[in-house]
Design a protein around this nucleic acid. Structure first.
Lengths: 346, 346
DNA sequence: CTGTTAGCGCTTTCAT
DNA sequence: ATGAAAGCGCTAACAG
């Protein structure tokens, strides 16, 4: 097996005493080649150590990469710590695998050259995990002119969007959280890519650049008003990242403040778990002293007996993949429902 | 913006009144082009709707794909349900992102054409999540002649392996599990790709084709012999897949049988959680009536107060990525340790 | 069943 | 600073 430079198909063909096309057919349309030729080609390939047709060359010639690009948030490393993102990815991966398409995770780190990473991805289309209105990656994806689907938003020209009606869902679960409450609060995910944490009223939702966050806050506002509470007085604790620990800290601050909340709507289940842990460590009764709601209905929500919004991120991942692959699938908004357990008063 | 066929660099060059190379430099070595030319090229690109240099063509010409292939087990869909695999993947993704390399998840489904998916992946190297000795994907990876690293094994010619000494770790934790026990049992992951479940002694470890499983069983055998128990009498309940639920069922069978085990070494933490749930529902005291150990030290192991083996799969993912990218990193075996909590007698 | 031709779109090399 | 030539490795299209 001669080493050194990589072996090419034409070398194999020559060594087998056939034309390049016969060698090519041997790999791509074996039925079209006589058994004898095929055997000679494969023998030569083995002898020369030919690793098979070069995927890059094939991809250029065929005009397709047979792979789907996935952009997982402003920094890749956040995504794998987020169970929701992982289950979304599982849905995408499943459909891609069925279709025989690879799934290329685009190396986004938050740096300026992220846009180049998108432009240079060898893929046929893109799926973008929810990001902010002003994320430059969106323009980069659009510029590739390849089919693209954004999960959760922002919706924009040239990009399809898939996601539940977050405002309606937040309104529904928020109404349960805030029912009978006097001092409602919210533990929120970041408002924009700066990911600054803060505590206080969020009067202008126009400042909120993550559309999913914005819609959920709008839904909680609707809910507060539904039960006769003023939005100005709803304290919003914004955590810089999703996850239990930061939410637990934030909840502890809220719950030890002079105006202790008696209801907390958390923007995600993990945050709700953190809130429940804080409440438990402070000896508060749930739901009498404090009502809590989450969002997403992760598996652990059942053990926490958490009232929350159920949606299937995995299913939505599948839908995104189908759309980006050009399959015909219904484009109705994905379903959601409120799961009432024991952390709310009603 | 003229529609239809995709715009090429030479069209942009022509329209800008410069040579193709000036246009190419504009994208790849902007400093080498006069500001005037650059502006004209970019203007023409915008006007024609040029999406930037085609990644496939660039990849062919440059001879590199700038992406790492990852093979996640015999069927992709198992991987995302496995917290260990996810955290391994997070480690891989982090290093790839730093290096600006994409991460291509190869669409493996267990079908015969899996080997083609590997051959056709546009990548510079491969990382394989632990699989069985006889998995044809391994030969396919080797055949590409690209750098490749296998996590967990099997080790084989042409493929580097990364992973802890599973036998030693299992011996250590198994010795805690079986200390003072009379009727030891094991809840095991599958033995081979057939994934048949079974209950009984596993006399011949040579039948076990997953090297990680084989090594851990060998370690548990060492442990049993350490404490004076005969391996023939150790009942092994093999679950067809990893996960809490199947392990819970298996444990319930064991614990309601005539010869109820008083110690169960589970091959993974999730399985151990299932065992603990079964024991709890049967009213058994832990560790007095039943000692239990796990493997991996997932975050939830702390809440279960589970005695287990700690290792960092994320770290090992990083190591695999560095190796496959050709970085110089120390190749010492990754560290592990036994974390003693309250589910064992010592 | 096999072969010839003609590029896919780009960038390296070497001139100018 | 710019350009001409050459060809990366392969396969669609069309003969024979």
């Amino acid at each position: 097996m001669p080493p050194g430079r990589r072996v090419t198909l034409s070398q194999v063909a020559e060594s087998a005493g056939v034309s390049v096309m016969t060698a090519s057919y041997t790999y791509n349309q074996p039925g079209r080649v006589s058994a004898a030729s095929r055997a000679r080609v494969l023998e030569a390939a083995t002898r020369l150590g030919y690793p098979g047709p070069d995927p890059s060359a094939r991809s250029l010639r065929r005009g397709s990469a047979n792979a789907m690009g996935v952009v997982l948030g402003e920094h890749l490393s956040y995504a794998f710590d987020d169970p929701g993102a992982v289950s979304f990815l599982a849905g995408v991966a499943e459909v891609c695998a069925e279709a025989g398409a690879g799934l290329l995770i685009v190396p986004i780190t938050g740096a300026d050259h992220d846009v180049d990473r998108v432009a240079q991805a060898v893929v046929d289309g893109f799926i973008v995990w929810t990001t902010s209105d002003d994320d430059p990656v969106l323009a980069a994806v659009r510029a590739t002119k390849r089919p693209a689907v954004v999960h959760g938003g922002p919706a924009s020209a040239g990009l399809q969007a898939v996601g539940i009606d977050n405002r309606a869902a937040a309104r529904a679960v928020g109404t349960l959280a805030f029912a009978g409450a006097r001092r409602p609060a919210i533990v929120s995910q970041p408002l924009d890519r700066s990911r600054l944490s803060s505590i206080g009223a969020v009067t202008d939702l126009g400042d909120v650049l993550f559309p999913v966050t914005r819609d959920r806050l709008a839904g909680y506002r609707d809910a507060a008003e539904n039960v006769g509470l003023a939005w100005d007085e709803v304290v919003v604790a914004v955590c810089s990242r999703n996850g239990e620990d930061l939410a637990e800290d934030a909840a502890r601050s809220l719950l030890t403040s002079s105006a202790r909340p008696d209801a907390i709507a958390a923007m995600g289940d993990q945050q709700a778990f953190g809130v429940l842990r804080a409440a438990r460590s402070l000896g508060l009764r749930i739901p009498e002293d404090l009502a809590v709601t989450g969002f997403d209905d992760l598996p652990a929500a059942e053990q926490y007996e958490l009232t929350t919004v159920a949606q299937s991120l995995r299913e939505q991942g599948s839908t995104c993949a189908h759309l980006a692959l050009g399959h015909q699938v219904p484009t109705t908004a994905p379903p959601w429902s409120v799961v009432v357990r024991t952390t709310t008063r009603q």
